[in-house]
Amino acid sequence: MTQKYANHYIAQIKNLAKCYGDVRAVDDISFQVCRGEVFGMLGPNGAGKTTTVEIIDGLRTADSGEVTVLGMDVKRVPGRIKEKIGIQLQSPSLLPLLSLEETLSLFASFYKRSLPIDYLLDILALKESRKVFVKNLSGGQQQRLSVAMALVNDPEIAFLDEPSTGLDPQARRGLWDVIEDMRRKGKTVFLTTHYMEEAERLCDRIVVVDHGKIIATGSPSELISRYFKERAIRFSVNPTPTKEILKEFPGVIEVAIDGEDVLIYSDQIPATMSAILGYAEETNLTEQLKDLHVRQATLEDVFLKLTGRKIRE
């Protein structure tokens, strides 16, 4: 491996596996994270995301496989790696009687290099609650504190495990700004999420995991175009035609009916559309046809197609 190649990847994961009893939490997965990108790991709860991240962080040991972060083997030099990476754990409880500010300042003292506390409080909109004891923080504030703690050492790569869980929409957009800002500064972000919207908006590349295995890799748009050349047509009508009738329409690949709502995946949008309109005219349902629109497939659709499940079940 050449030096240039090694530098290109900030983290390399090869044949990683971890079992808990009979459960294969992580089942032989390999991927690379490039320097300066926002990398997303997408999957439902229990897919093995957290286990994978914690092995890369050096917080857990793998049963087998190799993990290199910043060119170092996480098993051998975790201390030196920890100086340069930022870790956000899923809902860790901290020292309840320290204030938010004191907590950040304590964690800053663990590192040789750290960002100013005021800056962190500012970007995560925590300035007003700086004096509040950790035990009195709201769920969203605690979540933002845990992100701030991951960034306190100005890390080369930040591992954020479901950072937007429990945040209100405004705080979530604030968090996205922080992540995009890191990318602008050339930092790397490793993100796990089950919010499709978040992954589509932020991630340069994603891996989709389910049952401990990677089932797809690529950029969000690559994945969508790879798995959905077709787009989705939506409308509602009463009474709804049967699936069998709809499947006979030109270009139709898949049909889903939920009450009055109809979802049709099609790879020939104009042909399918005119068939729908023709059918409505024939059956005198033109008046009943509402909300007819075409939309781009999303990662949600990709996930549904790959796993047969919605992501948050």
């Binding site: 920890k82 409880s93 901290l94 020292l95 964690f107 040789k112 050492n153």
Partner: peptide, 13 residues
């Protein structure tokens, strides 16, 4: 028990 040590363990301390 409350995983505070785990969080400390994620830092170089």
């Amino acid at each position: 028990e409350k995983k505070v040590l785990k969080r400390f363990g994620a830092t170089p301390v």
